[in-house]
Simulated assay, not measured.
Amino acid sequence: MRILIRSPNWLGDAVMAFPLVQLLKENLLGVSLQIMTRGYLAELWEVHPAVDKIRIIKGGKLREIMMALKMRKEAFDLYISLPNSFLAALSGWLCGAKSRIGFATQKREFLLTHPLPLPQKQHRVFQYLNLLKPLNINVHRLPPLRPKIDQSLKEKAKGLLNPQKGPFIALNPGAFYGEAKCWPEENFMRLGRALIKNGFQVVLLGSKKEAEKNERIKNHIGENVNDLTGKTSLKELMAILTEMGCLVTNDTGTMHLGVLLEVPLVAIFGSTSPAFTGPWKGNNIVLSSSLPCSPCFKRKCPKGDLRCMREITVEQVLSAVLRIVNASKS
């Protein structure tokens, strides 16, 4: 059986699809699993042991359409559309897959052989698992996930970190989706200084987009800060995360990588809901707002004050980090 899965376009969503892909491999004997994805997520799917081949979409919407048409000759038995977009369902129809499963969104039902209702109040991981129902795969538990991280990457990570200076706490101050997801910059500064006083080495993580922000945070914290912002590939980031005693993060793709790798973490939520996109396994503490306007799911705070994030104090986050680190020691 040949299966083509259209990957989500966001890093966090793609990570949350890992259990679905693993369950397909475990339940369908002799299956060949291929992932159709944007290039920036190729390294992520390379670490999934159940994936047999990665098909990279090189370009925009027209390129995806052309790519799907070229795959008609490959006779896929099944196509699963993880994105809810019309284009993702169209790609499955164009590639000629016999069966096509996806959620009934954006008036695309006619492109799918199995259009399913989108569950509205369910964590994203379990939303995706609903797509297994037409295959009679009943999910009683989340499968163990064992990402493949080469030893050479682990050695490189240790070289970047200098293990003699640990233990390490990673701070991830950014969020690609928007500023409403971000705990205030000055709070990360104060937290970093407090962590140094408690004997930790601070590691700053983020994309090139957060380089200036993280540079300011680094300069304020002072010594014992290793700024790796924008300096790692996706696989290198994963290897670095495995060396962390704890990850302090907003609701981001990096948070979900931490969950996947079972890195102890403190996740800070304001504009989004941990019930829908929070950590879904592992040792973690979630801190979220109690304000009636939270979660608003906006890129920018509608009220302009980011109060939902500001009410989560540095002292709360530091306490959570110390609890997680101490629990890991025992």
Score class of each variant (00 low, 15 high):
Asn162Trp: 10
Gly159Tyr: 05
Pro143Arg: 00
Pro184Lys: 01
Leu160Phe: 12
Ala170Glu: 05
Ala157Val: 05
Ile169Pro: 03
Pro184Trp: 03
Ala157Glu: 02
Pro184Asp: 04
Gly166Trp: 05
Trp183Leu: 03
Cys182Pro: 04
Leu171Arg: 01
Lys158Val: 14
Gln164Leu: 15
Pro184Ile: 05
Phe168Gln: 07
Asp150Gln: 15
Pro147Asp: 09
Asn162Tyr: 11
Ala157His: 02
Trp183Ser: 08
Pro143Tyr: 01
Gly178Leu: 10
Pro167Leu: 08
Glu179Phe: 11
Lys156Gln: 11
Ala180Leu: 04
Lys156Leu: 11
Leu153Val: 05
Lys156Phe: 13
Glu155Val: 07
Ser152Thr: 14
Cys182Asn: 07
Lys158His: 13
Trp183Val: 03
Pro173Phe: 02
Gly178Pro: 00
Pro184Ser: 06
Leu161His: 14
Lys156Ile: 10
Lys156Ser: 10
Leu153Phe: 08
Gln164Thr: 14
Lys148Ala: 08
Asp150Arg: 14
Phe168Glu: 04
Pro143Cys: 00
Phe176Pro: 09
Gln151Trp: 12
Ala180Lys: 01
Cys182Ile: 04
Arg146Lys: 14
Ile149Ser: 02
Glu179Leu: 13
Leu171Cys: 07
Arg146Gln: 12
Leu161Tyr: 12
Lys158Ala: 15
Pro173Gly: 00
Cys182Lys: 03
Ala180Asn: 02
Glu179Met: 12
Ile149Gln: 02
Phe176Leu: 13
Gln151Arg: 15
Gly159Phe: 06
Asp150Ser: 15
Gln151Thr: 12
Leu171Thr: 04
Glu185Gln: 15
Gly178Trp: 05
Tyr177Ile: 06
Pro163Lys: 14
Ala180Ile: 03
Gly178Ile: 09
Gly166Cys: 06
Pro184Met: 06
Gly166Arg: 04
Ala175Lys: 07
Pro144Asp: 05
Arg146Thr: 11
Lys156His: 10
Lys165Leu: 15
Pro163Ala: 15
Leu160Trp: 10
Pro184Gln: 04
Pro173Thr: 01
Arg146Trp: 09
Glu179Cys: 10
Glu155Lys: 07
Lys148Thr: 06
Ile149Val: 06
Gln151Leu: 11
Ser152Asn: 13
Asp150His: 15
Leu145Val: 00
Ile169Glu: 01
Ala175Tyr: 07
Ala157Met: 04
Ile169Asp: 00
Phe168Ala: 07
Glu155Ile: 07
Pro144Lys: 03
Leu171Asp: 00
Lys165Thr: 13
Leu153Glu: 01
Ala175Pro: 12
Glu155Tyr: 06
Pro173Val: 00
Pro144Cys: 06
Glu179Lys: 15
Lys154Cys: 11
Arg146Ala: 11
Ala170Tyr: 03
Leu145Phe: 02
Glu185Tyr: 12
Gln151Ser: 13
Glu185Val: 14
Leu160Thr: 08
Leu161Ile: 12
Ile169His: 03
Gln164Phe: 14
Pro143Lys: 00
Leu171Met: 09
Gly159His: 05
Asn162Phe: 11
Pro144Ser: 09
Gly174Phe: 01
Arg146Cys: 10
Phe176Lys: 14
Gly159Met: 08
Lys181Phe: 01
Leu160Tyr: 11
Leu145Ser: 01
